[in-house]
Each structure stands twice: as structure tokens, then as C-alpha cells.
Design a protein around this nucleic acid. Structure first.
Length: 670
RNA sequence: GCCGGCGUAGCUCAGCAGGUAGAGCAUCUGAUUUGUAAUCAGAGGGUCGCAGGUUCGAUUCCUGUCGCCGGCUCCA
């Protein structure tokens, strides 16, 4: 090894520096400004501490606060600061892990007593104190055995577990001041004084290693930014997001409600929410007719045996409402002294029959297909239904309209030949594209869910899976949008293509889905007569472009922040007479709106027009039509839009026709 | 399901070292007849989520329960 190193900078220039030179030295040689702004370095593509000496000829990049990667390092360093503060205040605490995440970081702690909100304030204060001590993040190398012994002595069992699992023979650790050490790959910012703006946000339970069988730790979430300004901006955004939360807007706009007495996770659609849902259903129904779907209706329950055949029961018994067993059987079992456990066993074994609230629509549709023989000439057969299904989601998961226990899928099942699969899947994807396009939803990602090779929960032969997965991948490819392949995300009967969007707090929700299924046709022994006059097995495609109406509308409320385009708005126009003497004219305007099928209201209260406007505005009604003496005299209305304000007076008929046009064309404009 | 927080009028929220509750908005009544984001006055409205316990006395403290919120786990 030579005693000088050749360092290549991003602009291609090269520097010869002696052994032992650090990225920070080089930054300083380029300029003090860069040295001050530097957060971390990148050496041959890998993140590297600024103070860590370069070891060989390298490509070197100095990352400043303009870099996303630097921000991650910065947040990770803030997590260490949090851990150091917690250990100072509560020395009995054991450390878990503390990674950076979107907008911030967390650190997991094991401590017998739970952290409180007041603790959070104390901890944050201590973090500031430690920050002001200007402690360096110092990297040290430790041989594995020695390190293990040390962390054992420190009483850090989780760290020991991590070292055993992931540490190299010599691993790195970082210290902060004389007492704090953390097994960590790094890198970090040079010193705590660099951490300008952070805030602890919340405490939550989290299982060690995400395994619900392991102990539950206390996770402290925080957010961290390069400047106070960025932090303030982030907090402001959180406030904004709260305002467009569909649970808040759903209440304010009177769209839906959930009632304790009815049950958690059971959405009650109020008239205004129902309008939105109905409009969406009408919208998609037109496309279904065009694409050759047939409408069917099926009941909400089916016999347990149906779901034994489909494989839903008892596989997913935990996420279903308990089976419905008839009175006579219950009485008989009670006489026998049958325990709950025995009952559920006997239900599983099929010794007792009962009904299940349907967790999916497919078995019912399959039975419709199977109710008559089919020729290859009939295929594809596309059966659609807005079918309501019931799933017993864990109580901690429920919320708003996005995770519920009863929901209506815009479901359909396509029965086709294997050759027809690509065309049919493409047709399904086209539908999803039309929906997302019409609604202006651009921020979605496409996930191709493949089976997890380690899991035994899937039914079917590997060759079938391979073919189905290929069909999905090909279809996603031809869709022309970026997609990710995600093992472990398949349904138990087949791979799927999902459309995933984020809600206002950044949680991801699956909306539309297309799933290829070779299993159910087999389980139900479905067939059709081929051109060769032999029996063949059809392939099934499950698809729901909206996914569930509840979840979709929930996400849609947030997407539009409650300000629905004209065609979806529960009230499309409201007539606001200025005084009582304009009421008659106002009624005439209202009638004209209603005559062309618009949803119109009249605010006939003896309130000032300002007041009426304010209310209509808060209800996010797209059109406010103000009528007073001038308008009544000239056959006009003064148009005010919720977004553009006062638009001036125009002839009534012209305005009515204009709004009707926007509604009819499902336009995003207003 | 697990961890933590919360639950006061229709809504948003205040209050209580334990002495049976208060504001704004909404509602109702009356007045006002109004020109682009809140007219004025008066009135009604709460067994302080529910059930136990401690106490002379509980909305306040304790326990349980239901529900909501944030995470975790799960999501056919």
C-alpha cells in the first residue's frame, strides 16, 4: 500500500493525499464553507463518516444538507441522541434498534415502566442538553467476542442478539460522550451540535423484531430536520393533513358515520356519502356494460361447506365473523355440554354445519357459473356484483372507512380460458386506469404480489403459480407504469396486481386489485367444453377496480380534501337569495337546476348572504348562485365558485347548462 | 389481539387539591330583509362513555368494560 492516496471527486478532479486523510480534511481543502456544510461522506458509493480516515484510492463525494441520504444519516444520529438521553434519565432501559424513517426516526426501548407524555418532554429537553455538549460520534472497531462480552456486561441483551446475528468478526460501534455506546454500522454526523431541529412525537408499542411472539418494546417516534424552518414546515403539514383526514371531513360534510351500537368497523353511509358512492357505481357500471360484464346478485351468507371447498374456512377463521349455527343444533350441543373449543373444532371438521357471513364473493359467483354447462364459445364469462363482504379485522386495526369489518367490493369474476388471461387482465387494468385517470389520482403505485416461497399458506401447484405470476408480471409490464414485484404479497389462491395509495398520514392502502386464480376452479371442479369436445378447466380472474367502496371513498375524500368535482359533489349547486323578496325567483332557479338532474339546494333562511356563503363554502359546494334584485330583473344568477370566488352574473339557463355539462362529462374542471 | 393515550351538550373544547358542570358554534323562538366567508337578543340542551369500588360525597381517585386515536402485529 502506497503512502499516498488518489482521491477522485465528483467533478472528475483528483487529489493526492497522505494516508490518514479524512473526508473532512478534503472538504476543508476545497473550502471552509463545504467543510461546515458537510454532513457525511460517500466513499466509493458507500456512506462514510467525515472523520473516518480514507483507506484506499477512492471516489469521494461530500454530502451536505441538500442530500436525502445525508438527512437519513442525520436522523439516525438523532435517534442515537434520543437513546443517549433515555439512558441518562432511565439507566435501567435496554436498547433495541433506532433507524431513520420517513420524516424522522424511532428508537425501541425495553423498560418495565411505560414512558409517559411527560417523560417525552423530559427526554426531549435532555436531548437538547446533550446536543449542546457538542459530543462527537466516535467510531470504534471491536472484535466480535470482546464486543459481545462488553454488551453483555452493559446489560444489553437485544444488542447482544443483534451482534450475534449480524456483526462481522470485527464490528463497528459508536460512542457519544464517555458513557453511551451503540452497536451500529453508522455512519453519523460528526457531532451532536449538528442536530439543529428535532421533536419527539409519540410513544407506541412495538414487538421486538416485529414478531408478536417476542416481548413488546416501547417505541419513541421523533422527527428531525436540518433546520427549524423545515421542522416547522413539517409540523404545519401535519396540521394540514389532519384537516383533510376523511374521518374529520366525513363528519363535517355529513358523509358517513360509525356508531358504537351498530358496531365498530361498520360504516353507515349518510345521504351525502351515499350520493358519492352511487355516482361512482353508476360511472363504473357503464364501463362494465361496455366491457361485456353481466350483473348478478347474491346473498350475504353461504354455508360453511361452501367455504370449506373454497378454502376460506377454516384457513381464515380468525378473520371471519363466527359461523352462524341454527338454534336446534345449538340447543342440542348445549345439552351435550359442548364447550366453545369443541364447537369450533367440530365446525372445522365439518361435523356441524352452519353459515358464514361471506368473506368474499367468489364462491357465490362460482356457483352461478357452475349452474349450467359452458362451451368455450361462451367464454369469457364476466360476472359482476357490488358485493358486501364481512371480515373480522383485529380491533386495533379498525378506523374510519379505510379499515372496516363490512365493506362492498365492486367485485367481478371472469371465467376464461388460459389463452384469454392476458387480454382479460389487460381489460381489468384498463378499467383501473380509467378510474384513476377520471379522478385525477396520480400518486399510486402498482404492486405485483407474488407468493412467498417460505410460506405454507398458499394452495395450489408451483407450476400453476409460475404461470399465473408470469401472466401478472406481463400485464403489469404492458400497463406502462412502474411496478414492484413483492414476494409474500400474493393472495392465498393466486398472485395479484394491486393499486396502492397513501392516506394523509402516509399509511398505504390497497385499492384496486386484479388477481389471477388457478386454484378455485380446481377446488370447485369447474369446467367448460373445448373445441376438441373435451372438458377443460377455466381460469378465474378476481378483480375490483375500486377495491372496496368504503376504502375508496375514504381515500377519495382525502384526495379531494372534501371538495369533490361537480359530478360527485353531494350538493352541486346552492341558490342563495339575498332577501326574502328573492325567494320566488330563487325557487325558480332551483327548479331549473333540478330539472336537468342536478343536485341543488336553496338556502331560504333569513340570514345575510355572507353567512349563507360561508356555510356553503365550508360544505365545499362547487357552485353558489346568489340571486338579488339585479339578477331577478335580468333573468340571471351571480355565480360564485368555491375555488374562484365571485364570477359575476350570467344568464340562468347558461349557468345551469354549464354545470350540467361538467357533471355529465365527469369533468374535473369547475 | 398487543402497548400507550383519550372519552364532558349535536360539534370543537374548557373545568374539577373530590362538594352533582361552562364557553363558542349549531338548534329553537323573536327581531332583522340583508350583495360574496359568521346580524342581534332570548331560550332549550349534559345521570361528564358504561359498570363496580374507595369516600359523608365521585364527572374528578381506583378497578373493570366499551369505544375512539397513534403505533405494533395482521390484512384471503
Amino acid at each position: 500500500m502506497s503512502s499516498t492516496l488518489t482521491i477522485t471527486l465528483p467533478d472528475g478532479s483528483q487529489k493526492s493525499v497522505p494516508q490518514g486523510t479524512t473526508p473532512h480534511d478534503i472538504a476543508r481543502s476545497i473550502g471552509q464553507r463545504l467543510a461546515d456544510d458537510a454532513v457525511v461522506a460517500k466513499v466509493n458509493g458507500a456512506l462514510w463518516d467525515l472523520a473516518r480516515p480514507l483507506e484506499q484510492d477512492s471516489q469521494l463525494e461530500i454530502l451536505t444538507s441538500k442530500s436525502e441520504e445525508a438527512l437519513e444519516v442525520y436522523r439516525h444520529s438523532t435517534a442515537h441522541l434520543l437513546a443517549a438521553a433515555v439512558l441518562e434519565l432511565y439507566p435501567e432501559t435496554k436498547l433495541g434498534i433506532g433507524p431513520p424513517i420517513k420524516d424522522g426516526f424511532y428508537y425501541d426501548f425495553d423498560r418495565p415502566t411505560p414512558f409517559t407524555t411527560e417523560d417525552l418532554e423530559k427526554i426531549e429537553k435532555r436531548m437538547v442538553e446533550i446536543r449542546d455538549r457538542d459530543l462527537a460520534y466516535e467510531r470504534r472497531l471491536v472484535p466480535k467476542e470482546e464486543g459481545l462480552a462488553k454488551y453483555k456486561e452493559l446489560g444489553e441483551p437485544m444488542k447482544c442478539e443483534l451482534i450475534e446475528e449480524r456483526a462481522d468478526a470485527i464490528f463497528s460501534e459508536y460512542t457519544l460522550g464517555p458513557h453511551f455506546i451503540d452497536f451500529c454500522r453508522g455512519p453519523h454526523v460528526p457531532s451532536t451540535k449538528r442536530l439543529k431541529a428535532f421533536k419527539l412525537m409519540s410513544i407506541a408499542g412495538a414487538y421486538w423484531k416485529g414478531d408478536e411472539k417476542r416481548q413488546q418494546l416501547q417505541r419513541i417516534y421523533g422527527t428531525a430536520w436540518f433546520s427549524q424552518k423545515d421542522l416547522d414546515e413539517h409540523l404545519r403539514k401535519l396540521e394540514e393533513a389532519k384537516k383533510r383526514d376523511h374521518r374529520v371531513l366525513g363528519k363535517q360534510l355529513g358523509l358517513f358515520t360509525v356508531d358504537d351500537k351498530v358496531g365498530p368497523g361498520l360504516v353507515l353511509w349518510k345521504p351525502k356519502g351515499a350520493v358519492i358512492r352511487q355516482e361512482l357505481q353508476t360511472f363504473i357500471s357503464a364501463h362494465l356494460r361496455r366491457q361485456g360484464y353481466s350483473q348478478v346478485f347474491t346473498p350475504h351468507i353461504g354455508k360453511l361447506d361452501l367455504y370449506r371447498t373454497s378454502g376460506h374456512f377454516p384457513y381464515y377463521a380468525d378473520s371471519q365473523f363466527p359461523p352462524l349455527v341454527d338454534r336446534e343444533q345449538i340447543a342440542r350441543l348445549a345439552d351435550e355440554g359442548c364447550s366453545c373449543a369443541t364447537l369450533s373444532n367440530r365446525l372445522e371438521n365439518g361435523e356441524i354445519d352452519g353459515f358464514l357471513l361471506k368473506p368474499m364473493n367468489c364462491p357465490h359467483h362460482i356457483k352461478i357459473y357452475d349452474s349450467e354447462p359452458h362451451s368455450y364459445r361462451d367464454l369469457p364469462i364476466r360476472l359482476s356484483e357490488f358485493g358486501t363482504v364481512y371480515r373480522f379485522e383485529q380491533s386495533g386495526e379498525l378506523g374510519g372507512m379505510t379499515r372496516v369489518r363490512g365493506f362492498t367490493q365492486d367485485d367481478a369474476h371472469i371465467f376464461c380460458t388460459e389463452d384469454q388471461v392476458p387480454t382479460e387482465v389487460a381489460g381489468c387494468l384498463e378499467l383501473v386506469k380509467i378510474i384513476f385517470g377520471t379522478l385525477g389520482m396520480k400518486d399510486y403505485r402498482v404492486r405485483v404480489g407474488l407468493r412467498d416461497p417460505d410460506s405454507a399458506k398458499y394452495v395450489g401447484e408451483p407450476e400453476q403459480w409460475d404461470r399465473a405470476e408470469k401472466a401478472c408480471k406481463d400485464a403489469a409490464q404492458s400497463l406502462g407504469v412502474p411496478f414492484s414485484l413483492e414476494p409474500g404479497e400474493a393472495a392465498f389462491y393466486g398472485p395479484k396486481i394491486d393499486f396502492v395509495v397513501q392516506d394523509v398520514i402516509g399509511r398505504e392502502w390497497q385499492l384496486g386489485t386484479v388477481q389471477v386464480d388457478y386454484q378455485l376452479p380446481q377446488r370447485f371442479d369447474l369446467h367448460y367444453t373445448g373445441a376438441d369436445n373435451k372438458m377443460h378447466r377455466p381460469v378465474m380472474i378476481h378483480r375490483a377496480p375500486f377495491g372496496s367502496m368504503e376504502r375508496f371513498v375514504g381515500v377519495l375524500i382525502e384526495h379531494f380534501a372534501g371538495a369533490f368535482p361537480v359530478w360527485l359533489a353531494p350538493v352541486q349547486a346552492i341558490v342563495l337569495p339575498i332577501s326574502d323578496r328573492h325567494l320566488e325567483y330563487a325557487r325558480m332557479v332551483e327548479e331549473k337546476l333540478k330539472a336537468v338532474g342536478l343536485r341543488a339546494e336553496l338556502d331560504a333562511r333569513s340570514e345575510k348572504v355572507n353567512y349563507k356563503i360561508r356555510e356553503a363554502q365550508l360544505q365545499k359546494i362547487p357552485y353558489m348562485l346568489v340571486v338579488g334584485d339585479r339578477e331577478a330583473a335580468e333573468g340571471k344568477v351571480a355565480v360564485r365558485t368555491r375555488k374562484g370566488g365571485d364570477q359575476g352574473a350570467r344568464a340562468v339557463d347558461e349557468v345551469v347548462a354549464g354545470i350540467a355539462e361538467l357533471a355529465a362529462t365527469r369533468s374535473a374542471a369547475e
